[in-house]
Amino acid sequence: MARRNTNIYLTVFENLPINQTATRVAVEQRLEEIRHYRQIGFIRREAGITASYEPRYHGNTNLVSKPSEHLAISNVDREAELIRKSELLDKAMCSLSAVQREVIERSYLAREDEYDFISCGEMGISDRTYRRIKASALRILAVAMKLEVFEDEESERVREYAKCSNT
């Protein structure tokens, strides 16, 4: 008897016009960003030149340039954003099965770069099964982290028009 697919995340990909390639790229970029943050930490940007304490007015607008202030604010905001993304990934990883979680950790979050075929051998599964598990885990993460990339209705119309004109 076949197992019934009760995973709600996979049905989203079947029912909505999601660009699977772009979604996969978006999830992989987010995983890479979080891996760098977890391994290295946050690297703050620093000002190349310390601004003077005197206000410098620009023309008639009376705007004051505050590069140090803008830099400090962007550092704080960026670090808070990375922490939020890391916590969101942890929550999304909880929705994966144990095998899917291990595949994602080995492929994207591990410190050392390891080829997929080596991970397959260590896990005792075939390459095809490994790729299938990895693809389904990436789809689940995309929905859980809200990284789905939807196809434009215009691009669908262009494709339909191209199909019609070719026949």
Results as ranks from 00 to 15, higher is better:
residue 32 E to F: 12
residue 92 A to T: 02
residue 64 V to N: 03
residue 108 Y to K: 11
residue 71 L to D: 01
residue 55 P to Q: 08
residue 57 Y to H: 14
residue 100 Q to P: 05
residue 81 E to W: 08
residue 43 I to F: 08
residue 119 S to W: 03
residue 10 L to M: 10
residue 87 E to D: 13
residue 2 A to I: 11
residue 125 I to P: 01
residue 35 R to S: 10
residue 15 N to V: 12
residue 27 V to M: 05
residue 74 S to D: 03
residue 23 T to S: 11
residue 130 Y to R: 02
residue 160 E to G: 08
residue 55 P to S: 09
residue 104 I to R: 09
residue 42 F to Q: 08
residue 89 L to P: 06
residue 83 I to Q: 12
residue 18 I to W: 03
residue 62 N to E: 13
residue 12 V to A: 13
residue 147 L to E: 10
residue 97 S to E: 03
residue 73 I to L: 09
residue 122 E to C: 12
residue 6 T to E: 11
residue 102 E to W: 07
residue 57 Y to L: 15
residue 121 G to C: 06
residue 59 G to E: 00
residue 57 Y to I: 14
residue 139 R to E: 04
residue 123 M to I: 12
residue 58 H to P: 00
residue 51 A to L: 07
residue 148 E to G: 02
residue 141 L to P: 04
residue 28 E to L: 14
residue 151 E to N: 11
residue 123 M to L: 15
residue 134 K to A: 01
residue 38 R to E: 03
residue 122 E to M: 14
residue 90 D to V: 04
residue 48 G to V: 05
residue 9 Y to N: 13
residue 144 A to G: 06
residue 70 H to W: 05
residue 129 T to C: 00
residue 87 E to L: 12
residue 72 A to T: 05
residue 121 G to L: 07
residue 162 A to R: 15
residue 153 E to T: 06
residue 77 D to E: 13
residue 67 P to D: 06
residue 16 L to C: 11
residue 129 T to Q: 03
residue 1 M to P: 05
residue 122 E to N: 15
residue 12 V to R: 10
residue 36 H to A: 06
residue 60 N to C: 01
residue 118 I to D: 09
residue 14 E to Q: 15
residue 155 S to D: 09
residue 11 T to K: 13
residue 39 Q to W: 11
residue 165 S to N: 11
residue 154 E to R: 08
residue 115 Y to W: 10
residue 2 A to F: 13
residue 16 L to V: 07
residue 21 T to E: 10
residue 71 L to I: 07
residue 54 E to I: 14
residue 5 N to K: 13
residue 117 F to L: 08
residue 49 I to V: 13
residue 78 R to C: 02
residue 74 S to M: 06
residue 59 G to I: 01
residue 132 R to N: 14
residue 140 I to A: 05
residue 135 A to S: 14
residue 37 Y to V: 03
